[in-house]
Design a protein around this nucleic acid. Structure first.
Lengths: 158, 158
DNA sequence: CCCAATCTGTACTTTATAGTCAAGATTGCC
DNA sequence: GGCAATCTTGACTATAAAGTACAGATTGGG
């Protein structure tokens, strides 16, 4: 249960692009790679995932580069992370952790699965509320924003 | 941001051992490995982590095997996961995602870091409340238990 | 004391993720 | 058309996580 490199750098690239798009310009791979301190090739790989996810659009040739595909306020960070690294607990998780058996020995009744679902809900509670626009603040403002996330009501959805 | 295999199988082994300890007996590696459908060698590897974490104790020789080191109600799942797979967002995370730079280009002010902290708090909110004892229920009972987790008050701790 | 049952530790192989490389395709400008 | 800037793609290498193998150490029983 760790943040993957894809998730971290992917979100950072989006933040850079959001600032640039706000200022009316596009960013090229060399610009983004230098800003984040990663190689151009790796930046390109991450940007590809973001493009395929529909979050950014690219233009080739001179004056080309990347921009957000839609307003920052409509880009939900939870969706971005789904594209970059998958979910914490996916529906097929139990099927892929059966050991040598063909189905998990607890498939019909599993308290552990119930706990994982609860964790997933808690994570979604935060990430479904956060948009790229919310990340265009300084750290102190962001800390305040976080406190506005409503209760554990999402936990009651189950 | 995915559950690791260590985390999944580690918790499952603990649940098996909790049931066995309740019934007064110990479980051997072959027993546990067969119950979970993993190889004995792999079960042994996971059990080692749990032992080093102080959650279980082992006895060798005939009549040997594993038992919980302390009552299930005192074993917090959050602590177990820390031992098995580390935390979502560790304090040194930014230091290890600097690309080729020596420090992250945003080290002094990073809204993304603030969001990750919020996610970590949301996860801890659930996992610090859950003990191994809570997992000794069927899935339906566990779903009810999850709903009793108090609000997002933990989010205000920041 | 010897043997069988059991855990322990280290080293190994396999697979997934992280990160690189090079050739190709598009665009705009002259 | 030709060139330079730019993105695109697939294959490649390196590192970390998952999973295996095996020799060694401990315990209890006959």
């Amino acid at each position: 249960m760790k943040l993957s490199a894809n998730e971290e750098y992917g979100v950072r690239c989006l933040v850079r692009l959001a600032y640039a798009t706000e200022a009316g310009g596009a960013l090229t791979i060399p610009e983004i790679s230098q800003a984040e301190g990663v190689s151009p090739a790796y930046a390109a790989k991450i940007l590809r995932v973001l493009r395929k996810g529909g979050f950014i659009k690219a233009a080739r040739g001179k004056e080309g580069g990347y921009k957000l595909a839609r307003p920052a306020g409509t880009i939900v960070i939870g969706h971005v992370l789904d594209a970059l690294g998958g979910r914490l607990f996916e529906s097929d998780f139990c099927d892929s952790h059966t050991g040598q058996a063909t189905i998990c020995t607890r498939s019909v009744d599993c308290s552990v699965r119930s706990l994982w679902r609860a964790v997933q809900v808690a994570v979604d509670q935060v990430l479904s509320k956060a948009t790229l626009r919310d990340l265009l603040q300084n750290e102190r403002e962001m800390n305040s924003w976080v406190r506005t996330i409503p209760g554990p009501s999402a936990l009651r959805v189950m």
